[in-house]
Computed example of a mutant assay.
Amino acid sequence: MILTQAHIPYDIAARAWKANGFRDSYAWHQRIWEAFPNQPKANRNFLTRLDDTGQDFRLLILSPDPPTRPDWCPSTQWESKAMDANFFHHPAYHFSLVANPTVKLVIHDEHGQRKKNGKRVPLIHREDKVIDGRTIPGLETWMQRKAAQHGFAIHPDHPLRIDPRPEQTFIKQGTVGKHQATEFSGVLTVSDQALFEQAVTQGIGSAKAFGFGLLCLSPINL
């Protein structure tokens, strides 16, 4: 896997949309595609994460193949390197994950019949809640479930930190959409190596094309 780090100055990110600007998360999605000019969008196989550092925007890209630096990123602010295959073989890591946690609710029609498609809603509360007689999982439950699905566990001696991020509103093909962003961080221990590596390379949760799901890791000794 190739990890790319780019720093995009604020003045570039503030360009008008017609001048290849970055007006919202969908615009970032479109601009980042320029780093993979020969890859059909249907075969998207990379993950991204964007952070405002207070000095610029830091963009991370995790991809199987090296991306091409787009013209909008200064050459001095773009760096790609191959990850050591042994990086995924540590028993424990500090982690940070910016995700779009959602839950799909069962919806019934006027006759009480369950509809084929439910309603997907964002999760914004930390603890589980009971609403209209049904339990809606909280953010902590969501993260614990995702960990179990993806071959790792949140270390009980290191509290899970949950930090809300600003809601992301975007325009796609004339339609306004939004994502609820949440950052999870803490310490994880690996229980299933294959599932864990798959989670790192394929991402966790929904809206991966919009910069969610990239698991940032730093190995530690417990």
Rank of each mutant, 00 (worst) to 15 (best):
K172T: 07
C73E: 04
T201I: 03
Q39K: 11
A19K: 13
R69I: 03
F88N: 03
I107W: 10
Q149Y: 12
F57G: 01
G138H: 07
A199C: 06
V176R: 15
T201K: 14
A13H: 08
G112C: 11
R161V: 10
L105Y: 05
V187D: 14
T4K: 01
Y26A: 11
M1R: 07
N86L: 10
G151I: 05
L47H: 05
D65E: 12
H89L: 01
W28K: 03
R134Q: 15
E167Y: 01
E127R: 14
I136M: 13
H155F: 05
R49I: 03
Q30Y: 01
Y93W: 09
I154H: 09
Q202K: 12
Q149S: 15
A14H: 12
Q202W: 01
K18D: 09
F196R: 08
S191Y: 03
A99E: 06
V98H: 04
Q77S: 14
G174W: 09
A92E: 14
G186N: 09
L62I: 00
L139S: 06
Q5W: 00
A147C: 10
P70M: 10
S191N: 14
S185Y: 10
S185W: 01
S185V: 01
P137L: 07
K208D: 02
T135P: 05
D132Q: 10
Q168N: 12
G174H: 08
R23Q: 13
